[in-house]
Design a protein around this nucleic acid. Structure first.
Lengths: 187, 187
DNA sequence: ATCCTATCTTGCCATTGACAAGATGGCATC
DNA sequence: GATGCCATCTTGTCAATGGCAAGATAGGAT
């Protein structure tokens, strides 16, 4: 009915990416198997190779998708740095598969022009939000340093949350916990 | 002469762990191959299984080693939180293989009692250092929140550094760059 | 109607992780 | 010193995987 969109067997490229997100969510990006994806999509084991070349190619496409999604998420969070930080963590939790791939460059072709461009777009949005941060100590803060500190704290919190490294007392609401932590930096 | 310590073929367990660190440093933990380790150590392809059971077993041993090493590194950095934070980042860079495994629980048996104990020891040292942090805004800061913020910022910076995600302008000295960023939190 | 190209399949090979069974050598015990 | 025992390591095997090559198929352009 609907999934067939004009290709030979349906919108296989998109189906494979969606399935990859699902599979990575179950077992992590390292355990991803192209043949498993093919089975889930109901195609032969070599079909993915045609669309992505190899596994790194598929993950490269996933990284591009992820950076674009992150940029959009940050934009929608508005101008406030605190809100953007919470959105960053929320993105990592809700789009765990994308996030885990994006920051593991040994898994894909990180120097791919499309990835670099998408990554740059997302970084630009984050920097814009930091520009609104009041300088610490009243003096003129170094915006580069402020951006790096903000990025580090949200990225670190997100990573630790995903790794399950945080103690139970932090609670089970990543947005609330993240807001609390980020306030330590921006207030 | 020296490597043989009383075993059948030498100190194979230690040799495999050392070789694993080397191999992970070259291609990351996901690409680690037990058979490659065996080849490098000059033993048969099934020898590693005897010492570690399977690949997860070897990485579990590596994680224990890593957490112990981290605890020791933080202890040697002294009481100062800034110094401990810089030491955390320095550890991640100098012991990249250990660090990458430690915070990727899907690769090993994170619920293993030895890992949990070692992880708890390292976390305890970090919490001790945070206890010395002056409360922000003059009021009594929540030590849990402060610890989480401190851990997040150093972990995030280390992770981004290792991922090669930071712009060139940050420089090539991780200790100096980390100190600069951490100051944003502790000053 | 024919060609053409993107899409997908079938077949194959080297590598890997894991398991089972066997060989080897040091060590304790008698 | 001989014997048995056990940790250590080897050999052999199997299923699964990634990747490559060659072929089949279908939908659209000419």
């Amino acid at each position: 009915m609907t999934p067939t969109r004009g290709y030979h067997h349906g919108d296989l490229r998109r189906a494979l990416l969606d399935t990859a997100v699902e599979a990575i969510g179950e077992s992590g990006p390292a355990a991803l198997s192209l043949r498993d994806l093919a089975r889930r999509a109901g195609v032969s084991h070599a079909a993915p190779a045609h669309h992505f070349g190899d596994k790194a190619g598929l993950l490269t496409a996933l990284a591009v998708q992820g950076f674009d999604l992150l940029a959009e998420t940050l934009r929608q969070a508005g101008d406030d740095l605190l809100a953007a930080g919470v959105a960053y963590v929320d993105f990592a939790v809700r789009h765990r598969a994308h996030f885990e791939v994006m920051f593991r460059p040994e898994l894909y072709r990180a120097q791919d022009p499309e990835v670099r461009a998408a990554s740059e777009r997302a970084g630009g949005v984050l920097r814009d939000r930091v520009a609104g941060l009041p300088a610490r100590d009243g003096g003129a803060g170094d915006p580069g340093r402020d951006a790096l500190a903000a990025w580090s704290i949200v990225h670190g919190f997100a990573t630790l949350w995903l790794a399950g490294a945080l103690p139970p007392r932090v609670g089970d609401d990543p947005r609330e916990a993240a807001r609390n932590v980020i306030r330590r930096l921006v207030e």
